[in-house]
Design a protein around this nucleic acid. Structure first.
Lengths: 127, 127
DNA sequence: AAGACGAATCGAGAATATACAATATGATGA
DNA sequence: TCATCATATTGTATATTCTCGATTCGTCTT
C-alpha cells in the first residue's frame, strides 16, 4: 500500500520553513475560510453570469422586461437555446418571470445584478 | 436546398403580432446591444469567479498576499491543482504575483474584486 | 374541438472546464 | 556540482456546460 501524502502535507512542510510559527499561520488560514454554502452560492451566481448570451439578456432587461421572443431577437439564437439560458438565469435567482397568455415576460429579480455587471466592466477596464 | 429559417425569424413574426410597430422595437433591442468585446471581457471575469476553489483563494487574499504553499493549505488540494487555479485568476487579471526566491506570492490585482464578491453574496441572500 | 402559436423540456453530440499525477523549471544551499 | 525545494507546465481522464432539433405543454383563436 503506497501512501500518497495527503495534499497539503508538503505545503505545510514548506510553511514550516517559511515561518517561525507555522501552526499559527495555518490556523489563521483555515479559520478565515468561508463556509461551503456561502462559496457555493456565490459561485452559482458567477457561473450564471459567465456566459456571453446570458450577459446580453441581462443587459437587455436593464431597461424593461422582455418576453421570450424579444430575447430571441436580442441573442439571434434558436428558441430552445434562449429558453435554456433563461432557465439558468431563473435558477440562479437573477431573473423572474410572469406569464401573460402564451407569452412569458422576464425581468431582473434584483437590481444588484447591475452592480455586478458594472463592476465587472470596471475591473475589465482597469486590467 | 432546404432553407432553415434563420433563428430569430419566427420570433420577429411573434413581435409583429405583439406590437403595432415591431420594427421600432426590434431596432431598439438590437441597438442597445453591448459590444462583443465588452461582453466577452465581463464573461471572462465571471468565468474566473465561477469556481469554489478560486473564490476561496480570493477570500484568502482579502487580508494579505499569500504564497502558493499557503494557498495549498487553504484549498486542501494538490499543488498542481492550486497552481492551475492561480494561473486562471492571473489570466483573468484578478490577481498578480511576484517571485521571491523560490516562492511565488499572490495578491489581489484590483480591490474592486471584493466588491464583486460582496455583491454576489448580497444577491445570494436576497434570493 | 382543431389548429396555430409562444414557450418549456428532452436528448444527444460538441465544446469547455476540472482534477491531478508526472514531469519540467528555476532557485537555493550544501 | 548536486540534491532539494517551491512552483509551473503538460498530458489525460473525467465532469460539466452548451447548443439546438425535436417534442411536448398550455393558451388562444376560430
Amino acid at each position: 500500500m503506497s501512501e500518497t501524502d495527503s495534499p497539503p502535507d508538503d505545503a505545510q512542510d514548506a510553511l514550516g520553513r517559511l515561518y517561525d510559527d507555522p501552526e499559527a499561520r495555518i490556523a489563521s488560514l483555515q479559520n478565515d475560510r468561508p463556509s461551503d454554502q456561502d462559496v457555493a452560492g456565490q459561485a452559482a451566481i458567477f457561473k450564471a453570469l459567465g456566459n456571453d448570451d446570458r450577459l446580453r439578456v441581462l443587459e437587455a432587461l436593464r431597461d424593461s422586461e422582455c418576453c421570450g421572443c424579444e430575447l430571441q431577437v436580442v441573442l439571434d439564437a434558436p428558441q430552445s437555446t434562449v429558453s435554456t439560458h433563461l432557465r439558468k438565469l431563473k435558477e440562479a435567482g437573477l431573473v423572474k418571470s410572469r406569464k401573460k397568455g402564451k407569452w412569458s415576460y422576464y425581468r431582473i429579480a434584483d437590481t444588484a445584478v447591475f452592480g455586478l455587471l458594472d463592476l465587472a466592466h470596471a475591473v475589465q477596464d482597469d486590467a
